[in-house]
Computed example of a mutant assay.
Amino acid sequence: MDAAARAPAPPSGRHTPRDCLQSPHAVRHPPFDFDPTHGRTLDDLLTIGPPDAPPDFDAFWRESKAAADGIPPRPRLGRLVEERDGCRVREISYATLGGRCAALLVLPIDGPARHGFVIGHGYGGRADAGSDLPLPLPGSAAILPLAPGLPELGLRPDLPSDPAGHVLHGIGSRDTYVLGDCVAGLWGAATALLELVPSLDGRLGLLGESFGGGIGALALPWDDRFAAARFTVPTFGNHPLRLTLPCTGSGESVRIHIRTHPEAMEVLAYFDAATAASRVRVPVLTACALFDPAVPPPGQFAIHGALGGPRELEVPAAGHFAYEGEAEERRRLDRVTGDFFRRWVG
Rank of each mutant, 00 (worst) to 15 (best):
P160I: 06
L150Q: 09
V178W: 00
P157T: 08
S131P: 08
A184L: 03
T176C: 10
L135Q: 10
R174P: 03
D128Y: 05
L137R: 10
G149T: 03
P138F: 11
L153M: 10
D132F: 13
S161M: 12
L168W: 09
P134V: 13
L144A: 07
D175L: 15
P163E: 04
C182D: 06
A184Y: 01
H166P: 02
V183A: 14
Y177T: 00
L155I: 15
Y177E: 01
L144F: 07
R156P: 01
P160W: 05
L179E: 05
G165A: 13
D175M: 11
G154E: 00
A164K: 08
D158T: 09
P138S: 10
D158V: 00
S173I: 08
D162F: 15
L153H: 05
P148R: 10
L135E: 08
L159I: 12
G130N: 13
P138I: 12
L150T: 00
L155Y: 12
P134F: 14
G130C: 13
D162I: 06
G139F: 09
G170F: 03
G154T: 00
S173H: 12
V178E: 01
A164N: 15
L135H: 11
I171P: 00
P145E: 04
E152T: 14
P134Y: 14
G149S: 03
L144Y: 06
L144R: 03
C182I: 09
S140Q: 11
L150W: 00
S173E: 10
E152D: 15
A142H: 11
V167M: 14
G149L: 00
D181W: 05
S161V: 07
G165P: 02
V167T: 15
D158S: 14
L150P: 00
L179D: 00
V183F: 04
G170E: 04
P138V: 13
P136W: 08
L179S: 01
T176N: 02
P160Q: 10
D128P: 01
S161P: 04
A184V: 03
L146V: 01
P138N: 14
I171F: 07
H166T: 07
D162L: 12
L159S: 02
A129W: 02
L159D: 03
A129R: 01
S140Y: 05
L179I: 15
S173W: 05
A164L: 10
S161Q: 14
V178T: 03
A141V: 08
D181N: 13
H169Q: 14
C182W: 03
L159N: 02
L133W: 14
A184T: 09
P160F: 04
E152Y: 11
V183I: 13
A141S: 13
G180V: 01
T176E: 11
I143K: 02
S140M: 13
P136I: 13
I143Q: 01
I143M: 09
L135S: 08
R174D: 06
E152I: 14
T176Q: 06
V178Q: 10
L137K: 07
P151C: 07
E152Q: 12
P148N: 06
L133D: 04
